[in-house]
Every structure is written in structure tokens, then in C-alpha cells.
Amino acid sequence: MADPFDSALDLLRRLNPKDTARNVGLLCDLAPQLTEDLLESVDVPLGVRRCRKTGREFLCCDYNRDGDSWRSPWSNEFEPPLEEEGVVPSERVRKMEVRANEAFDVYRELYFEGGISSVYLWDIDDGFAGCVLLKKSVNPSSKTSGSWDSIHVFESQDRHRTSHYKLTSTVILNLGTNTDTLGSMDLSGNMVRQVEQDMAVEDDGSHVINIGKMVEDMELKMRNLLQEVYFGKAKDVVGDLRSIQPLSETKRDKAAHREVISSMAR
């Protein structure tokens, strides 16, 4: 019999991806022993909070959470403030975190032309780990909406003059439109990809550069993949279910085509 945790994940990749956040909640309620694992491993659309100190918005996930508060990457302080001191990265890692946030803020503006970015780092044995978060929502018309959430989680293990990076990326892309002529159309979901790479490291600045390049390459790949699945595959399946052209015509066309080919071969 399969592991209950695997069954929960199997269920979540089958049920409507738009309901993933709600379904994770329901599963935690049904099987409380899975709560921690589910919250840690299932990606849901990112929350947004405003940093009291800088006035800037930042993104919230399990990695910058302490109880009911989230750490702002801009001020390193928790929002809402914690009564006791929260867990923050070591001085060295926080320094990298500040630089990474500056770099990904530029990246965000170049690629997303809006939205919010946040990078969180934490110390691990033999290195550090972190996540790069990006979020943007659009309403190109009153009847159409879209949202993009990138969740890149990585680990960096120090080796001699190089580092071994492990990156797991999830993009949650939700698109929907509702008009009188079309009715409602919802095209939503998430895709996950992983990559591992060794890259040269001179100093801590190298890490920000290396992670930047990996995330950029990954997002380029995933954007193409999403385009293929959402607007290629899904559309093709609709065409496989129902044919606009009468099938008798399609058959005739195919027969005529074969005729031409075989007469050319003669």
C-alpha cells in the first residue's frame, strides 16, 4: 500500500489546481499527521504583506514564517512584529540576502515589469539554502485575469572553489476569462522542474550571480513549457475531442492527399 503522504500528493496533482490551497487545508484536517509535510512541500499562491519599516510589499511563504508572522526581506523584521525575537539568518547570509533581493528586484522589473519579488536565505550545514519568490497579477480587461507565482527553492553546498546548487522551481499560472460569447474559460495550474549544477565561486557575491543565472534559465525554460502546455497541448486535446471540420470531409481530404502522394511516387 502506498504511503499516505504520496496519496495526498497524488490527489493534489489530480484535483482542480485552482483549489490547491483549500485542498491542502482539507487534507491537513482529514490527516493531521501529514500537516507539516504538506505545508512544506506543496506550493500555493504566495501571500503579500507590507513591511512596516520600509513601506514596501513582500511575499510570504513557509520559509519566512514564524508562527503567524512573516519576515520582511527589506527590513529583516517580522510583520506583524513578534513578541520574542524571531529566527533570522546569520550575518553573512543576511548580507547575501540583501544583495540577492536587490538583484532580483532588478530582474523582476526587467521580466515582469511590475509585481513583487522577495528572496529569503537561511543557513544549513556546509552552505546555505534559500528561495526566490516572484508574483504578478494582471487584469488585461474587466473580464480577463491572470496571475503568475514563481517559487524557486535552492540549496548551495560549498565545495573547493565551487558550489553545488540544487534548484526546484514551481510556477503557478492561473488564467481565466468570462464573456457572454465564450462563457467561462479557466486555464490554471502549476508545473515543477528541478536542476542541479556545479558553478565556480570566488566570494559570496558569486552566489548571487550563480543563483540569478540558474533562476533566469529555469524561468525561460518554464515559460516556454507553460506556453506549450497551456496553449498547445490543452488546445490540441479539445481538437481531439471534437472536430470543427466534418470528419467525413477530413477523411476525404486525407484520402485525396494519399492519392496525390502515391501518384507522385509512381
Binding site: 526587467l110 521580466y111 515582469f112 515589469e113 504578478k136 494582471v138 488585461p140 480587461s141 480577463t144 485575469s145 491572470g146 496571475s147 503568475w148 499560472l173 488564467l175 476569462t177 460569447t181 465564450l182 474559460m185 486555464l187 524561468e219 525561460l220 515559460r223 516556454n224 507553460l226 506556453q227 497551456y230 496553449f231 490543452a234 488546445k235 479539445v238 471534437r242 470543427i244
Partner: peptide, 22 residues
């Protein structure tokens, strides 16, 4: 079905493109 095809194109050209540049 024709309208649905246009729906795919419109979501791709408008919503998707304005979320993230290639």
C-alpha cells in the same frame, strides 16, 4: 468551438504575455 479557439489565443496574447516577458 471557434470562440474557444479565440479564447486560447486571447489568453496567450494578452494575459500570459503581460505577466512575464520572454
Amino acid at each position: 468551438q471557434e470562440e474557444l479557439h479565440r479564447g486560447f489565443t486571447s489568453l496567450s496574447e494578452n494575459a500570459f504575455k503581460s505577466l512575464r516577458r520572454q
